[in-house]
């Protein structure tokens, strides 16, 4: 009898957890970001991947609410697949639950730590962890484990307390290093895909600095 009651309590607890509402602070962050109708900015990009040498790149970024972020550059640039979802659209596209993990210290300051777990199989991420600045309602760090594109960690720094958009951003990601035969781009440019070996996962980073923001708020 006692055991059945415990099982019932555990079941009720689980259901309660599943039925919990989306974190209120996350909704406030979303509301703040939704107030940004559009913006344009210049970006300076530096790539730090062990097997890539790339000079500092310049590009422009433009965002229109409800649309994906667009980049424009005269040069070739690598754009991380995650990190530019300023309005958190990707999380809110499918149902999810949030789990409050309490307070976590990050770079000498305390932030609210939450997990986002999608309820729908259609979501392309498995879990996300966010550090929310509950004073200024913005995200300072997010870790997203995607289903197909590996894990991404995005760190954001802001110029002022009122700023909704970051002044700089670091995107960390996992990338497979390939070992290409040495003569691949030498005299013998024949391509033999069988000779190409993967060298395991490496962590890479892209540093972005935003400048000359032109923001249109609602």
């Amino acid at each position: 009898m006692k055991m059945s009651r415990n099982l019932l309590l555990l079941l009720l607890g689980t259901l309660s957890a599943l039925a919990q509402e989306v974190d209120a602070d996350l909704l406030k962050v979303k509301a703040k970001m939704d107030s940004v109708q559009s913006f344009e900015a210049g970006i300076i990009m530096d790539v730090d991947i062990s097997f890539i040498n790339m000079p500092t790149k310049e590009a422009t970024i433009s965002y229109q609410r409800g649309e994906s972020v667009k980049f424009n550059s005269d040069d070739f640039i690598l754009i991380p697949k995650r990190g530019f979802d300023f309005s958190l659209e990707e999380f809110f596209r499918h149902p999810f639950i949030t789990v409050d993990r309490g307070i976590e210290m990050y770079q000498g300051k305390s932030y609210k730590y939450i997990n986002i777990i999608p309820n729908s199989k259609k979501a392309d991420y498995a879990i996300a962890s966010l550090l929310i600045d509950t004073l200024n309602y913005r995200i300072v760090r997010s870790e997203i484990i995607t289903k197909k594109e590996g894990a991404f960690t995005v760190n954001m720094k802001y110029d002022s307390d009122s700023a909704a958009l970051p002044a700089s951003m670091t995107v960390e990601f996992e990338v497979e290093e390939v070992k290409i035969p040495l003569n691949f781009m030498g005299r013998d440019t024949d391509i033999d895909r069988k000779q190409i070996r993967t060298e395991g996962k490496k962590t890479g980073q892209i540093y972005l600095q935003f400048q000359n923001y032109h923001v249109n708020n609602l």
Partner: peptide
């Protein structure tokens, strides 16, 4: 090829 997973390319 190995960067496609993590990046979009512009240019």
């Amino acid at each position: 090829n190995n960067l496609k997973e993590s990046f979009y390319f512009e240019g």
